[in-house]
């Protein structure tokens, strides 16, 4: 039998209460759709740190220690400075610096740490480039793929060697968040359901806390009363020579609890003042 139909006959009830489908909530919960952050942005890729500033007067990587260049004319020198060369040379220089920070020994160019460092430098350079040229689709795709690959490598490293993984996160200034259990599109309906659930849970907690406070407040008067009554009963039993059911230990226990509760109350009052 449909209870909705029966209820609808009673005119006093609001139509919303009697409808059994398409229920619309009366709660004033406002849902704000989170803004979409592209996966290539540092917030999403987990890059907290930025690339170090490069001194443009620095020489190219292979000419760093050349004595001839240091003795050379200033115009010749300027030809070998990072600022006057391609971006690729600067990124090579940065990559070398980052690798030197994490590599196990001077000849190490293949360990997981070095791979991650290399990728991180490339990702950060590509992110800067993509900010300048947002319509460079090939760059965007390559960047996305590289970020995914780095995430996969971080996942492996975490499984292999946890402490090294943590050390890497600190060294490269990264944040690692595991992927969520399942993918779903963000919809208004589902989000509102979740928010309503959270709202109900909050109300439940509040009411429970209120009730708990109420019961706690009644504890001290109850104990005082109980001690008085127990002492009276014990005195009467001793006077009348009937079997004693209330022992002194029981009364002592109650007194101890009362003392504890009053001391706690006093402490709370002091804190408030």
């Amino acid at each position: 039998m449909n209870f909705g139909k029966i209820l609808r006959r009673a005119d006093a009830l609001h139509w919303q209460l009697t409808r059994d489908y398409a229920f619309k909530s009366d709660l004033k919960i406002k849902w704000v759709r989170p803004e979409k952050i592209p996966c290539t942005k540092p917030e999403k890729s987990g890059d907290l740190g930025k690339l170090p500033a490069v001194n443009e007067k620095e020489f190219l990587l292979d000419y760093n220690n050349s004595k001839e260049l240091q003795r050379a004319d200033s115009t010749v020198q300027s030809l070998f400075q990072l600022g006057n060369n391609r971006l690729g040379d600067t990124s090579r220089y940065l990559r070398e610096q980052m690798i030197k920070d994490v590599q196990r020994h001077p000849l190490d160019y293949g360990s997981m740490e070095v791979k991650l460092a290399k990728m991180t430098v490339r990702i950060r350079i590509m992110q800067e480039q993509l900010d300048k040229f947002p319509r460079n689709t090939k760059l965007k795709v390559a960047l996305k793929e590289l970020i995914d690959k780095r995430k996969k490598f971080l996942k492996y490293l975490r499984r292999w060697d946890y402490r090294r993984f943590e050390w890497m996160l600190e060294k490269l200034d990264l944040v690692y968040k595991p992927p969520p259990a399942e993918f779903h599109w963000i919809t208004r309906k589902e989000s509102l359901q979740k928010l309503t659930d959270a709202h109900c849970e909050k109300i439940k907690e509040e009411r429970l806390a209120e009730y708990r406070n109420l019961l706690n407040k009644q504890k001290i008067p109850f104990l005082e009363d109980a001690i008085k009554k127990m002492e009276f009963v014990r005195r009467e039993q001793i006077d009348l020579d009937i079997p004693i059911t209330v022992t002194e230990e029981q009364i002592a226990d109650f007194k101890k609890e009362l003392e504890f509760l009053t001391s706690q109350r006093d402490l709370q009052l002091e804190d408030k003042e």
Binding site: W31, R33, P34, E170, V175, K177, P178, A181, L195
Partner: peptide, 20 residues
């Protein structure tokens, strides 16, 4: 030591559904 700052594997992640 990085739990809650850099490493968030100690909890379940979810897709952000609300901006509060």
């Amino acid at each position: 030591r990085l739990e809650g700052t850099r490493d968030f594997t100690h909890g379940e992640t979810y897709i952000k559904y609300h901006e509060d």
